[in-house]
């Protein structure tokens, strides 16, 4: 009898609140969609002879990201054979979209272009992200077309791909790092973002807690899904 009454009440409630139930179910799945939405690639530009603490910081960040169900992939660039860009432009004029170097970056490229957020993580070396990061930045040229268009009253290369990931930057300061150094790097990476039809979604140093980076990523999600 109790069970019958419970079912009756449930059906009565559903009959009068059906729309809300359907909406709740939809929202529930939408939340799942949002949680699974963030696909993050972290490129770690820490050279092998440098900071152990930087790697530890990233590892802790990834644990928190996984707790939040972000799909995260970290690539330690130092473990891969990646050549410097040679400026041949074969990626524009001979094998469009494909870099001439047959090295480890070929396997990393898809993770860079198909993610929602591409994070460059590096200690500052000589006041700038490491050459491991910079060589990858240079090798991003195949992501755009050779053709030029005007964006913000400036010449830029046209899109090759329909979508580009947002960019994030995580840096470890040097002993002599000033605010001016951080501003310079931030401005240059904002430029990089314009070049690749994206935006610099966040800029953090390892002095800030990993949770703050996760909060920033949550903000990106919120904007992306509203």
């Amino acid at each position: 009898m109790d069970s019958f009454c419970f079912n009756l009440i449930t059906w009565f409630w559903f009959f009068h609140n059906g729309e809300k139930v359907i909406l709740s179910v939809f929202l529930y799945f939408r939340i799942l969609f949002i949680v699974q939405y963030m696909n993050i690639t972290i490129l770690n530009g820490n050279p092998s002879d440098h900071s152990f603490l930087f790697d530890k910081y990233l590892d802790e960040l990834i644990i928190i990201m996984k707790d939040k169900s972000f799909k995260t992939r970290k690539v330690n660039l130092r473990d891969h054979k990646i050549n410097f860009c040679i400026g041949c432009w074969n990626c524009w004029t001979k094998t469009p979209g494909r870099c001439v170097h047959n090295d480890d970056l070929q396997a990393i490229y898809p993770a860079m272009i198909n993610c929602n957020l591409l994070i460059f993580a590096s200690p500052l070396l000589a006041g700038f992200p490491s050459s491991l990061i910079k060589k990858v930045n240079d090798r991003m040229v195949p992501f755009v077309l050779p053709y030029i268009e005007i964006i913000q009253k400036e010449c830029h290369h046209k899109k090759r791909y329909p979508e580009y990931p947002k960019l994030g930057l995580i840096l470890e300061k040097e002993n002599d790092t000033k605010q001016e150094d951080l501003d310079i790097v931030k401005d240059i990476y904002k430029r990089l973002a314009i070049n690749f039809h994206s935006e610099l979604a966040f800029f953090k140093t390892t002095e800030e807690k990993q949770e703050e980076i996760v909060n920033e990523i949550n903000n990106i999600q919120r904007v992306a899904t509203t």
Partner: peptide, 18 residues
């Protein structure tokens, strides 16, 4: 100018100088 800064090879050299 490579991606609005110095090419990777130049950055590599700068790191050595530093």
């Amino acid at each position: 100018l490579y991606t609005d800064s110095m090419p990777g090879i130049v950055k590599y050299f700068f790191e050595s100088l530093h």
